[in-house]
Write a protein that binds this DNA or RNA. Sequence first.
DNA 1: TTATTAAAAGACAAAAAGGTCTTTTAATAT
DNA 2: ATATTAAAAGACCTTTTTGTCTTTTAATAA
Lengths: 152, 152
Amino acid sequence: MFKKETEYALRGMVYIQIQNLKDRRPGVAEIAHEIEAPFFYTAKIFQRLAKQGFVRSLKGKGGGFFLDPEKKDLPLKEIIIAIEGNELFIGCGFGLKNCDENNPCPLHQQYGLIRDEINRLVSGETIQSLALSSMTKNVSLGFSRENSEKKS
Amino acid sequence: MFKKETEYALRGMVYIQIQNLKDRRPGVAEIAHEIEAPFFYTAKIFQRLAKQGFVRSLKGKGGGFFLDPEKKDLPLKEIIIAIEGNELFIGCGFGLKNCDENNPCPLHQQYGLIRDEINRLVSGETIQSLALSSMTKNVSLGFSRENSEKKS
DNA sequence: TTATTAAAAGACAAAAAGGTCTTTTAATAT
DNA sequence: ATATTAAAAGACCTTTTTGTCTTTTAATAA
Ligand code: FES
Ligand code: FES
């Protein structure tokens, strides 16, 4: 569905926000480890997100990443579009140059419903909303879910 | 959503089947033109599809592609999986190694619904079903829809 | 002010996807 | 038989995606 870069970005941002809510500022090493992404690739991705203003960062000791309080309630859709464009949200499921009601592909009606659902999902959720539900529910951002180690 | 190769394959197969229903066997040049795909790339894609048994072909004069009558009612899903694997149909929307009810990502429930919809669509439609609805309805496989030139 | 820490910048490289082209093989028509 | 047609095979290339690594900049701590 999404590009790997998008997946890493979303998982990482949710992780950052969860930590921010605990008054922590994770660095690249910690983020990459937690979301099971390659260190250097994660670094590059968050560097870009910082430049685009989706996350903020501090250098040096005690530094790391955190979300601008004004950005944590942005719909996921905005982040996704910034990374991979909006083809998924407006494009034709059959690959026609543009999805056009007046020149529909054979999947137009049915695919339209799916695309609407996708749009609803990414418009309705935010990094903050996912971070909060991740903390209450038993939810995972990588292989090792440490949200709920106290299971035994 | 799908890879370009998948899109070309599906559009091309629907076109082939429409022509087959008119007792024609289109060649690569015609297919590529009709679905607006690069000639050589289309050739390669249909070569693969032929080797995998999804389409059949005849060389030489009057040659071209046609669907095995037994294959034309295969769900799109089988063709798609043969081309790009089944990640889209079983994978996690957040990019976790596997979508696991017992280790869900923050999008698990909501993405699950979308994934189910996608599965329903590609399991319920076939090349034949799309070819038939393409002929009755006013439907397009490329830019120039010649299904309905007699509009004036 | 110097050492240490951690992100920013940017070059580099491997892999996958997308695309092009030439040569060979197999049909048909003359 | 041979000329023609069209797919099969396969080499090759380009772009995008994914990933790696080194050097530089900025912050803090001692
Ligand atoms: S034209 Fe294909 S989805 Fe609308
Ligand atoms: S775990 Fe992510 S969709 Fe199921």
